[in-house]
Design a protein around this nucleic acid. Structure first.
Lengths: 203, 203
DNA sequence: CAAATTACGTACCTATAGTTACGTAATTAA
DNA sequence: TTAATTACGTAACTATAGGTACGTAATTTG
């Protein structure tokens, strides 16, 4: 129950900790590095906040990471869901997905790779709140794929001999590979070739 | 310069620490869990060794992990290299790779997933020895794929319009995805379908 | 036997990271 | 102005994990 600025009850010392600023700082630290290897104190330093301030706001390391995942969903993942939810032809959506996946991160001002995939790979190393959030976001993601695939099947734009849930796993896995390769420094051009090859198997 | 049992110089108190036993214990701990989250002390307990014993033998946490990677290569990865190096037709090698990848781990008595891919995903979290070893093993792996692909190209069993190094990355990425899905609990049957789909794109 | 050599393992050291106790500051309500 | 309220941040506390000092045990050599 963190109180926002626009709260009717305005008694006591005003809050100076910028929740959003802290979240974005943590997000970038986790995204650019290893999410399990960024100490709270580093986030505090970079965000110009105090440790007790963070704990008051997020309760724990686990709570902070959970909150960061929500921000990431809102800031990053949502764009992908919009693409999947569009009513364009299947092949155009596919192409939009590839383009979106390999867009230049330097230009966009964000790190390479995907925080969600990075955190999924380390799922066991997080606390219960973060772990549950990771599961939930992964399930959401698969569900978006499934709905897209089912729509495409209805419109006869996607072959019906591949079970929807397997196809969803396939898209998710390919995207995950792409994000990992990107983080390892493989060029987006090559990643694009790989994605196109992988997706061509579904025609 | 760890001395083996069959050493000519046999002075002083005989060594009781079982190097191989410690390595295998560590290997299984890392493989079954998160390689960055297994404390040395846990390996000592499970192997029945003392901490100073481990440090005498491996120098450091980093040194132990480096040594474990060599054991893993010898015990696990080599089988895959043998398959790639065989002179069977391309399609049969491909099928053998899939079969090998999705073989039941319970039966084989080993954990799900692949230690090498798990460690690659956490590359930044290891010391210099382990990090270099990871890079070296990954490069070895890609090289095996490349040689296999080039041979297949020569025999006209593989399309020539895909650059060899891109195809190698493709195989490596697909295998990595498979190992990750396996670790997450996806059934080997489904993983097999996914692999077959991914590889069908290369025909 | 004593000396030299090598390995053993208990009990510590140290650094780090998550977490919090507590005294203080800033604000509103009476 | 005083009380009540809320938030602030310094300076701890605690647990864990990598690493080691050092006294002891087991062996070969002379």
């Amino acid at each position: 129950m963190p109180l926002n600025d626009s709260n009717p009850t305005t008694r006591g010392r005003p809050k100076t900790l910028g929740r959003d600023h802290v979240l974005k700082t943590a997000l970038m630290c986790y995204w650019a590095g290893s999410p399990t290897d960024v100490p709270i104190s580093e986030i505090c330093d970079k965000a110009g906040a105090s440790k007790p301030g963070l704990y008051r706001e997020f309760g724990s390391d686990d709570g902070l990471k959970e909150a960061v995942l929500d921000v990431y969903t809102e800031m990053v993942s949502k764009r992908r869901y919009d693409i999947l939810a569009s009513d364009q032809p299947f092949d155009e959506v596919l192409e939009a997905l590839i383009t979106h996946t390999i867009q230049d991160r330097q230009t966009a001002g964000v790190p390479n790779g995907c925080l969600l995939f990075a955190m999924r790979a380390r799922r066991e190393e997080f606390g219960p709140l973060t772990a549950r959030k990771i599961d939930q976001l992964r399930e959401n993601s698969l569900e978006q794929y499934r709905q897209w695939i089912d729509r495409a099947k209805t419109n006869r734009q996607f072959r019906s001999d591949i079970p929807t849930d397997v196809a969803a796993l396939y898209f998710d896995a390919q995207t995950g590979s792409a994000m990992r390769l990107q983080k390892e420094g493989v060029s987006n051009v090559v990643i694009g070739e790989i994605l196109r090859t992988a997706f061509s198997a579904l025609r």
